[in-house]
Design a protein around this nucleic acid. Structure first.
Lengths: 222, 222, 222, 222
DNA sequence: GATGAATGAGTTTTCATTCAT
DNA sequence: TATGAATGAAAACTCATTCAT
């Protein structure tokens, strides 16, 4: 990994932490209210006056902290994009390659468990991000940049490593990524967004999902 | 299948066909323009005046045909929801159960091929549907109703049938559905929406995707 | 009475009768619907499309018969104004002066009875007239012209005649007119518009009202 | 009078006074402009843009103070309804019953004088009220409630009291009320609305009107 | 004569943003 | 820093009127 890329990562992580610091109480209330309203009605249909009302501040106060309504959106949705990919940015991720090869399943389970938890805690933020990405070029660029960066610098390497060990099929890495993301996203969307009341044993769910990802849904030809 | 359910299906299909009939030329231009603008900016951020302009009609003309802007949206997004599930409503689908058991892969490929084609032809409509469903209770209800109906009356039966034949693993049907939908949606989203310029051999893509769905991404422990 | 004035009266009466002749069935339905809608919502708040709908004709049909919406109003409200004053225009009215002086009460009763009946049969039309007169200069002029004409040419003469006979107090005729109109209008408004369900013996009501007009509400100082 | 009723009265009077307090200058200008335009064209035909223009404010400003155009109307017409009946709500009114019986005429004169003055000062407001009451159920209900309340709790008692003293004829109170209202309204409508330029000696006018009300228009049979 | 789709000017209403306090 | 009244541009929607059929 080049110095430049390391720097980028360090900056990002620092920004994410700053995020929660140095904010007045009103600013926090504004963000919270904005998250609520944006996720309920969508960005375009949300009105700053409703946000102000729910935050218990004057309309003008919003514009003291955020130049425009879109600024407010970006200050909310931007960090989520980064946090979404955070696990892959952590130094821990690199150690993955040192794992004994038969622990890959554990790793996939850990990732899924972590992102499921994250999605549950950040439902509204994720809803906002997903809905606004297609309409906000800045967000789209940010997400693409993050995703590409991560995939290129880390995930792809890991996949190739596991393929060399024979743990994964010899198929193009992007296909592995796509399938994994598909299964994981499908599982998370179902449990968090579509059927949040569906009762389930989380650990078993995770295990089954990883199992299907690895071994498919076909029966064993006897 | 009960008569009542058959009737529902017949009604729906007829409605879908009527859809394209008996429309004045201006009405068609309005719909086309609305699809464009809605998919570009999202429903809330789209203005009826821009739609009118692109359709080359007076703004009032829109409101002669559609009582409100939301009416216009629903008249566009409603049918898409139905068409999205159309293949499962066709009589042909029932014949699936008569297939020789080793042809299940062919069937999955056919479905994926068909929906990929549909997505490509209806990109904008699907984008609109997906984006507005969470904000329009009417749409949500419609989609849920369709999905539930189809799953309950048809797909589940097919899955149980194939499981009895040993073609599919003995896991809860909803898990089969979720995994299949996840893989298929992931593949379609990637090729149609995220990377439409990615060069690929469609038939191979389909085959690989079905293969991963059925047999997973794990390597063969030699 | 001068020839000119006689001519005016003759013209008016003829016009009133023509009114109901030579009208197509659709025209009649339009008028009826317009009366309904105008009286329910007021002229300005009434829409031609609602009138067309209630009349069961196409919107364009209204404009084939009436150049503008206001035209439609005037064709409805104008005649009512004339009919409102009709009794004073009739030849019979002139004979009033030949009545024995002690029959004045009978005459007042007859007028009140007649106008009460008229109001009951033309509630909606009168409502329209009253509400639109202040906003439609043409109507206002028409009403003023009619009222002045009648008062000057007929009623005033009658009052002076009765005063000469000692049947009426020696007060300015306009004061007699005002008091009479006030009492009569008050009575009609009450029974027809304000409390149409108030049960009452019409003949007694009329008698009492005329009695109060003539002799007041004061008790007899014993 | 029960406590509850007293409370109602107190509330109403306080509301009427508040009415003129705590209003920004722009708000006052909006009200004034609205009164002008509503009285000139009627509510439905008045446009908020004209009101804004005459008030010298932006159109949006109107809607900051009044949620809808109808809100603006009600905030204007509502209080008028109350003020119209105010004299009967005052504590002074109760003292009427203590007057020497031969002062009833003075009392009627005072009422008439007061309401004549009120009408002159509030021509436009009264015009608006009268014209909109039939089309705004809220207003109608308010007026009915006020009128009924007053009549039942106060006026009727006074009439019975005077009848017991022999000052008024033994006729049903509602008939006394109707005749009085008719005569007074007739007089006020004439002098304020129909013929505002008619030159007259106000005191004499009032006296004559009360005289006719009390003793009628019949001549003294000599 | 009758229709009803189309118009476009006008209406009420919303709302992000500014600014004096 | 915070406020909230004020703005005005733009939004959704209405409707009397026209005109080709």
């Amino acid at each position: 990994m080049t110095d430049e890329k390391e720097q980028w990562l360090v900056d990002l992580l620092r920004r994410l932490e700053d995020d929660d610091g140095k904010k007045t109480e009103k600013q926090i209330r504004i963000i919270e209210a904005a998250v609520e309203v944006f996720s309920e009605k969508g960005f375009a249909a949300a009105s700053t006056s409703e946000i102000a009302q729910r935050a218990g501040v004057a309309e003008g106060t919003i514009f003291r902290h955020y130049k425009t309504k879109k600024d407010l959106l970006l200050s909310i949705a931007g960090p989520v994009a980064a946090k979404l990919f955070a696990p892959f940015l952590m130094r821990d991720f690199a150690r993955l390659l040192e794992l004994p090869y038969d622990r890959v399943e554990d790793f996939l389970r850990a990732i899924l468990r972590d992102r499921l938890e994250f999605a549950r805690k950040n439902m509204k933020l994720i809803k906002i991000l997903v809905h606004e990405v297609p309409f906000q070029p800045e967000l789209l660029a940010q997400v693409k940049e993050l995703f590409t960066h991560i995939v290129v610098t880390r995930v792809e390497k890991a996949i190739l490593h596991f393929q060399a060990q024979g743990v994964l099929k010899e198929i193009p890495p992007w296909r592995v990524i796509r399938s994994t993301v598909s299964q994981f996203v499908g599982m998370i969307v179902f449990h968090v967004f579509l059927a949040p009341d569906f009762p389930f044993d989380e650990e078993e769910e995770i295990e089954r999902t990883v199992d299907i990802l690895l071994h498919g849904i076909a029966g064993r030809p006897s």
